[in-house]
Write a protein that binds this DNA or RNA. Structure first.
Lengths: 228, 228
DNA sequence: GTCTATATGGGGATAGAC
DNA sequence: GTCTATCCCCATATAGAC
């Protein structure tokens, strides 16, 4: 009688619990009981716990990336022949994710866990759907930054994605390290700070560190021996 | 016979397996058999699996942070009254971690997993040991960048730590997205790219996005389509 | 599609001999 | 400190009634 509704409720509960308790500490029992469904429902609807996780990811990642590309296209149209400012392109890449965070605070935590976990199966979903976004934005940045070589641009896109993802790990590391001064509660403020940082990073001149400074880095564990 | 050696071998195997298979998919049995030790050894030496993970972290994080602060102090001495360049300070913060990555490629993967996992217990170890580093570097950056307010500097330190951590998730996301063009094999090249990006980000002027551009972001979590 | 009952295995942890 | 044997919980997954 609940029909497809049950499926949605399971997805919602799974997303929330995966984010709050972690992928590894969330059991199918936790999920179904939170969703008011029964244990067997997960295997019925999603085949397995892993199948459930995959759908938790897919249902957000697909519209998220579609929106990024839509905003990118919009900007291209709006600016016509003129170069699109780096900030505008960055906004198209970052703002949809940040908006999603404020609407669905749990999804980015799940994302972070999957990206950090060595298991490749679920990660491939991200890679698959992000590939098109990556290429599209790489082209856009390359047009706005003709003096930066393409390889460098790709590195920098990766850096800035890291800055974004890390900002919303579930631990509120920044709030705690700053003694409560920095707060991640304001959507516009956050996106502006991120854009400011990343735009400057994208435009940066290349750099070679003077190697006299590097000498003598030594990290000795109390007992860490080199024994490849 | 084996005395303390066993403990070290367990730590080494644990670090490697946690990185390769993930925290959740690595059992104590996996670890002990890889280390040539016996199941009970883990509980004897570390009380529990969690205790083992804690020591895996501690033995690297303590000397790592000590080295960061040592390099920071060195730079201060070297430059005397003159302001230390942002790049030099960044180098003190990032290079020890990157060097550690090239010596012990598994540790950063473990770090990433802990930072992304909602479980707070182990994460607190990072927070505890990083607090001093964070304050020290915040002061240093503030001196070199008197026009940037302190709160902004803290945000940016967090962003740049994210850029660094994300670069070495175990999936080699960047190598795959770039079709093999970007490779994380060269230590100096990587640190230079990171420093270039982060130094520019730290120096960036504040920014406010023109809100006409923001209008109409829509991410509708449309029902998921099964594609199998 | 929903739910009960159960199969099946793996996991962390411990007692106690050596 | 090392190792064997074992306890017992809890996980995922399935069979089959309704």
């Amino acid at each position: 009688m609940q029909e497809a509704k049950t499926k949605e409720r399971i997805l919602d509960s799974a997303e929330e619990l995966f984010a709050k308790k972690g992928l590894k500490h969330t059991s199918v029992r936790d999920i179904t009981s939170a969703a008011g469904a029964h244990l067997a429902a997960v295997n019925y609807h999603f085949k397995s716990k892993d199948g459930l996780l995959r759908e938790v990811v897919q249902r957000r990642i697909v519209p998220l990336n579609r929106e990024r590309l839509r905003l990118l296209e919009d900007a291209a149209k709006r600016y016509g022949k003129k170069a699109v400012p780096v900030e505008t392109t960055l906004h198209a890449l970052l703002a949809p994710a940040i908006k999603l965070y404020f609407e669905r605070p749990h999804f980015l935590s799940v994302t972070g866990q999957i990206v950090s976990d060595p298991d490749d199966e679920v990660y491939k979903i991200f890679l698959f759907h992000f590939q098109e976004v990556f290429s599209g934005f790489k082209e856009a940045f390359a047009e706005s930054l003709p003096h930066i070589e393409e390889e460098e641009i790709m590195w920098r896109i990766h850096f800035l994605m890291g800055a974004m993802i890390h900002t919303w790990t579930s631990h509120s590391g920044l709030e705690r390290l700053s003694g409560g001064v920095c707060r991640l509660s304001d959507e516009e403020e956050t996106i502006n700070r991120l854009i400011a940082f990343c735009a400057a990073g994208l435009r940066a001149p290349e750099y070679n560190y003077p190697h006299e400074d590097i000498k003598g880095i030594q990290i000795k564990g109390k007992s860490s021996k080199k024994k490849d």
